[in-house]
Design a protein around this nucleic acid. Sequence first.
DNA 1: GTTCTAACA
DNA 2: TGTTAGGA
Length: 131
Amino acid sequence: MDALGDGRYSIRVVEQLTGLTARQIRYYETKGLLAPQRTAGRQRLFSAADVERLQWIRTWRGEGVTLAAIKTRLQAAKPAHAAAGRTPARETDAWARLSRPALTSLYPVSDRGRLMEVMEERHRSRKDGDR
DNA sequence: GTTCTAACA
DNA sequence: TGTTAGGA
């Protein structure tokens, strides 16, 4: 039960992808850090964007950033222009700083295989020293 | 069988 | 946070 095939992931897959526990993921949602869509049965369906947000949450949390501060960063990073369906006029906003460059910095790899390895490493460190 | 919410360890 | 109860 993993890939839903259409860019949406079950919470279990998101656990593997982010190295977070389902408990944490649900908790972050209650804190308003993300709002994955739901199935009719109320099960969460995470988009790639949701996964990306969670990866940032995990990274920042590891740096000691509080959830409140992370929420602010994510809100700043949230591209209002995306919802508006147009390109942002200013490339100097938070979104521009936090998107491509930051992700590239976190995962300086271009092949999916290596990316999965990196995430797996993070997943393994979840239970111990990484906190 | 998987995920959900709520609540307690 | 982890874990479990009790449902959907």
